[in-house]
Amino acid sequence: MGEASAVTMAAPPWQRWRSLAEAGLPFAALIVMLAVIIDIRPAVFSYFGFTLLFKLTTPLILAALGQMLIIMLGDIDLSNGSFVGLVTCITALFLTDNPGLAVAAYVALVLAYAAFGLLIHLRALPSIVVTLGMSFIWLGAAVMLLPAPGGLAPGWLSGFMDWRPPLLPLPIWAAIVVALAGHLVITRSSYGTILRGTGDNPRATARAGWSVVAIRVAVYAAAGGLGVLAGLTLTGLTTSGDANIAPAYTLIGVSAVILGGGSFTGGIVSPVGTVAGALVLSLAGSLLSFLQVSPTWQVGAQGGILFLILAGRVLLREVPQ
């Protein structure tokens, strides 16, 4: 340990500056995009403007954090988006008239997530295959429940999502609170270190006396829980359920994790970075519509923005010695 910190101390200052810049990249991108938007339309710079601009980021952030937990273990979750869709269907159908049933369904979903985590661990299956299969299960269940989009979110839920808290708009509060909670649990707490260590080197964690099975199951369950929260907030915003509402969350979530400093190798993730990444990705679409980019180019241009930011990260990354 002492040796490692000595190495860090010995690192030339430009290298430390570099890693700082890398961590700050999504935030810089966020500020630049916001500045451009506000320059085009100063009215955005208001409580009302920020509420609208960031309204739909809350469920995306929660889904991205769920994805982050899975990526932390060195796995990937391709079922995240359709899972959120299923939760919106359950919420819109049952939560108003039959809250008991809805809550039981949420618990069952979280347990199912945990069970798939267990399956992946015990049989040493590739998560990419299992979660792809899961995505069809979620989608199928959602379509069976709600063949056509519909249902109604309970009034308290849509009321909460419309709530105007003091000082900052709700989506910004949500982003701050969630980022802080993630930071404390994953980055700062000792248990978080164990979790990240499991993704990096499960054998070492096992040797240190921790149950890797229990960790994996718990992390998958937590990811499922975040998916449920994402679905709930999304239903509150759209006021209805739709099986096909959020397939894009899967890959946007993955991009947000990577953009925020995560890595597919496992063990390297940043909750604060992931939240910033999710904000950047949802703002990228807004930026293009404020810039009046023609619809034919919008999808490509969005990819272009993502590519530029990721390229920036690669350029800033320290070259391993």
Partner: peptide, 11 residues
């Protein structure tokens, strides 16, 4: 993407 369309509406 429906969520994308919703956020474009907000914009």
């Amino acid at each position: 993407s429906v969520t994308e369309q919703a956020s474009q509406m907000q914009n």
